[in-house]
Design a protein around this nucleic acid. Structure first.
Lengths: 191, 191
DNA sequence: TACCGTGATGTTACCAAGTCACATCACTTT
DNA sequence: AAAGTGATGTGACTTGGTAACATCACGGTA
């Protein structure tokens, strides 16, 4: 028999989501999380996550990487907005159906904690920055890169919101394209 | 002689900025700040600020209110972008010349702390939300309100950045108009 | 078989953020 | 003169987060 059950990290995330949903974020202690994750301890928790908050957001750096790769691989002829659209597609298609349920629970938990909302905003900014940086690398000017990246991030989060709010079986990519389209027409209507 | 020196709050802010600049944010303890602010204590600090972070951002709710009022008072005929411009003007004109120096130091301190950047992003989001809400109250549709508010907030922070980076004596309002103009042309160039 | 290094964990002790209940005391009001 | 108010202090507490050191199954290697 193995000394430790495997997948401590996963177990910690699950336990955290459960406890946060049951008691709220602030009322839950890191010790509790570790304990529920199979008799682990605080120390182990902080070996896996830098923060109590981070247990809900860990691994999101990959979103920035996925988006950036999509932009780097876009055809030469693509406009900034088209590149943002490709990033959005790549990002959205990396979310399988089964992640919708987790997303739902996550959204509910975050909605009840200012601290978590702060971290969430920070992650959103990181995604946007990654996209903007990738666009600049493709020769897009600073302002345009920032704006296109902002629209991409906005579309992603908007789509994620709809995806996790509704019950219908559409895929995240479909929502993403829908929201992105709406955003583009709204931008045109701005002037 | 009064029992307490007045303006404890101000003194705490000053002390915090000084210490953060000298030692960095993380290396500075709330006790130190309170002590330097004239022999105060931790408890008093937390009576004035909910957070260690908040000492650098306290009072920014007023920005949202100023922007919202400008939007509420805009002429009937104003477009969303024009309303955002008015909010930006009102906001920028509330910053007197002498606040540029403080802004400079603040920017430097924040640039060295992830925790402070997170809080800063959160405050930015709050400003944007306040503007968007005010726009919706004026009958602007959700998407358009969000986008116009985003542009307003973006212009404000961009202008603040330039204002606190450069040495030339232009006013924040001038920078704000400049950046806002650039943003609008960049938006047109997006499509 | 015996030994050794490695990796994920636990233990203990510690610091600092943040909270709370209660005390103090100058100044104001009655 | 007594009572009340408001900003502060005190001391004790919980919890997030860090660091040093110990443990022990496993996988090799001699």
């Amino acid at each position: 028999m193995a000394r430790w059950e495997p997948n401590a990290r996963e177990r910690l995330v699950r336990a955290a989501i459960e406890l946060f949903a049951e008691q709220g974020y602030e009322a839950t202690t890191v010790n509790e999380i570790a304990e529920r994750a199979g008799g682990l301890t605080k120390t182990t928790f902080f070996r896996h996550f830098t923060d109590k908050r981070e247990v809900l957001f860990a691994g999101q750096e990959i979103h920035g990487r996925i988006a950036a790769e999509a932009i780097a691989g876009a055809p030469e002829s693509a406009t900034p907005l088209e590149m943002a659209g490709l990033a959005l597609d790549g990002l959205a298609s990396s979310f399988t159906k089964d992640r919708r349920d987790i997303g739902r629970r996550l959204r509910a938990v975050i909605a009840n904690s200012a601290e978590l909302q702060e971290r969430s905003a920070s992650k959103r900014a990181a995604l946007s920055d990654a996209m903007a940086q990738a666009l600049r690398t493709r020769g897009v000017s600073d302002l345009i890169a920032d704006l296109a990246a902002e629209l991409g991030a906005r579309a992603f989060y908007g789509a994620f919101d709809r995806w996790t709010s509704s019950a219908d079986p559409r895929t995240l990519v479909e929502y993403a394209r829908e929201v992105f389209g709406e955003l583009k027409t709204a931008v045109s209507a701005l002037e």
